[in-house]
Design a protein around this nucleic acid. Structure first.
Length: 538
RNA sequence: GGCCCCAUCGUCUAAUGGUUAGGACGUCGGCUUUUCAAGCCGAAAACCGGGGUUCGACUCCCCGUGGGGCUACCA
């Protein structure tokens, strides 16, 4: 943090401070500042910390030789000191959150509260995929963010399958989604709910809307009336307030002419009935949000808080689609990525904690994840980075665990020894077998390698190595290394001139785990047999 | 077309009016070395453009430009 004039944000645990106060405050916080807000909020106070139960931002503008921050701070915060203040944290104010930005304004201070950013207030969230395909990484990330919010706040996670489009929804896809979530470790407190199953209630609401005059029938379908004037403001924790003028929104259809309810209505009603507090979903839903909010309003209810996540793009910068090999969760799993790495990577795709930490355990994630640090711009899925991260996770796994995972992945047993030798060379579970297969299935067939290292000279050196290995006792990595290095010295050769022929003889290729370790694992008999075979073939 | 969102190295991001614009992946170079990796060290690499506001703008405002989304009796 920069020194000197800096805005201060202080973390304090204000027990019982009502978040409701916030709404009333933030709008006039702008220029009038503190006094006003304080009066409004009672004994308020402020601020911040990614983990504060109630997050209040003390914002001020130091630009104008105003009384210093400290002065302001002392005056304001003092009242709360008696309670519980850990005011040692300097954080910059303002924010990507428009609510804060608004308050920032100029002049002196504003006390703005950020209701839903409070990671600790129980949040009820939902993940609502439509079962029209596999769960791809975008959906997985949305599910993850919701889950982190629920778990991190002690709230609830609802899984709702949006299957009101019977033509495109399939049971098989539902199963794929459940399987993917399960693999990721994302569980839920309610569900899976079938949106189609709520049809009776949806129909009831449609009827209610019609009777109250908010909706009318048009060519058999039912539409919601959208006033010509006015506007609907969507409160979005990531994007700030987004205003939609009603004149740009036509009356929209909420029920098909066969009477069946449509998406916008079903979503609004289900979220309402489930008492969802935060709707966290992809940005592609942003434009529909005012419609859902209007339905809620017509019903006499306040909308939930929204948070629209940036979309994920393919490597070419375009929207992620099947064409980009739109990695589904299953594909990642089958490609040998482990759940921890996928979760960690996904968490970082659109969110960042600070400029230091890259690896996050699930627990850290639930603890640290907040919507205010979610970025606003689309991100590109970078498999290279996932690979790197996956490798890092594999390397830090205890040997037995890695072995167990690789055995499960390959369907083979007795891999412990080979895993030990290969663990530092693989980035995915799938990388193991190509590297280690020769231990179990015999040398790989790589003509070029044989040609290059088992030619005349290579063959002669191989014979020397063979003779030396035959006498090694016991047959261990250390003794093997000693004897082969002796050969190198005796021949006056370069190490690789002896080692590579041996490597190719036992593995069939030029790439393998450490040669001495590999020989030991193979055992003397098998090693010599392979070397003999190589000599004969050459 | 209309409405809405977005814009920092190739990629993911940090930065919250004052930094030599930081980190990570990838790339390149070096070390290590029995191959390949891993590891360690180092390098190149970014504020879309133009106007404002300000003593000072990557940060705030406006306009462009570019990208994306929505505009269904799909979700």
């Amino acid at each position: 943090m920069r020194q000197g004039r800096q805005r201060l944000l202080f973390e304090l645990l204000v027990e019982g401070a009502g978040v409701d106060q916030i709404d009333r405050m933030d709008h006039h916080g702008v220029d009038r500042g503190v006094g006003h807000l304080l009066a409004e909020g009672g004994e308020i106070l402020f601020v911040k910390g990614r983990r504060a139960p109630h997050t209040w931002a003390l914002v001020e503008d130091l630009d104008r030789g105003r009384p210093g921050v400290d002065a302001a701070f002392d005056g304001l915060v003092e009242p709360a000191r008696g309670r519980n203040v850990c005011a040692d944290q300097h954080v910059k104010a303002d924010s990507r959150c428009a609510r804060r930005r608004t308050a920032k304004a100029s002049g002196f201070a504003g006390c703005v509260a950020l209701p839903a950013m409070t990671g600790r207030q129980p949040m009820t969230v939902r993940f609502a995929p439509s079962p029209t395909g596999l769960l791809h990484i975008g959906g997985a990330r949305t599910a993850l963010y919701n889950w982190l919010l629920a778990r991190g706040s002690g709230g609830r996670m609802i899984l709702r399958i949006e299957d009101t489009d019977k033509v495109r929804s399939t049971k098989e896809n539902v199963d794929h989604i459940l399987e993917a979530l399960d693999w990721l470790g994302i569980d839920y407190d309610h569900g899976p709910l079938s949106q189609a199953g709520h049809q009776p209630r949806h129909l009831e609401v449609i009827e209610q809307l019609r009777q109250s005059g908010h909706a009318y029938e048009f060519e058999g379908s039912t539409r919601l009336k959208v006033p010509d004037e006015g506007e609907t403001v969507v409160r979005d924790l990531i994007r700030g307030d987004v205003t939609f003028k009603h004149e740009a929104i036509d009356d929209f259809t909420i029920a098909r002419s066969d009477g069946s309810p449509l998406y916008n209505l079903a979503v609004a009603v289900d979220d309402l009935d489930s008492e969802v507090t935060h709707v966290v979903r992809g940005e592609d839903h942003l434009s529909n949000t005012p419609r859902q909010a209007m339905i809620l309003e017509a019903l006499g209810h306040a909308p939930p808080v929204y948070a629209h996540l940036p979309l994920l793009h393919g490597p070419d910068g375009k929207k992620l689609s099947k064409r980009h090999g739109a990695a589904s969760v299953q594909e990642l799993r089958d490609a040998g990525y482990v759940r921890e790495a996928v979760v960690n990577y996904l968490a970082l795709l659109g969110w960042g904690y600070d400029d230091k930490q890259t690896f996050f355990s699930i627990d850290e994630l639930t603890d640290l994840f907040t919507l205010d640090r979610v970025s606003k711009s689309a991100a590109v899925f970078d498999e290279q980075k996932l690979r790197w991260m996956n490798g890092a996770y594999l390397r830090q796994l205890p040997a037995e665990q890695l072995t167990a995972r690789i055995e499960a992945f390959t369907g083979r047993e007795g891999l412990a020894g080979a895993v030990e030798l290969c663990r530092e060379k693989i980035q995915t579970l799938a990388d193991f077998w190509p590297l280690a297969a020769f231990f179990f299935d015999g040398p790989t067939d790589d003509p070029k390698a044989r040609e290059k290292f088992l030619d005349g000279e290579g063959r002669l050196r191989l014979q020397d190595a063979r003779a030396a290995l035959a006498g090694v006792e016991p047959f261990t990595t250390e003794t093997i290394e000693d004897s082969l290095r002796e050969v190198v010295e005796r021949l006056g050769a370069k190490p690789k001139q002896v080692f590579q022929p041996v490597r190719v003889a036992i593995s069939g290729t030029t790439i393998s785990p450490g040669i001495f370790e590999s020989l030991e694992l193979l055992g003397r008999d098998e090693s010599l047999a392979r070397i003999d075979a190589a000599i004969d073939a050459a």
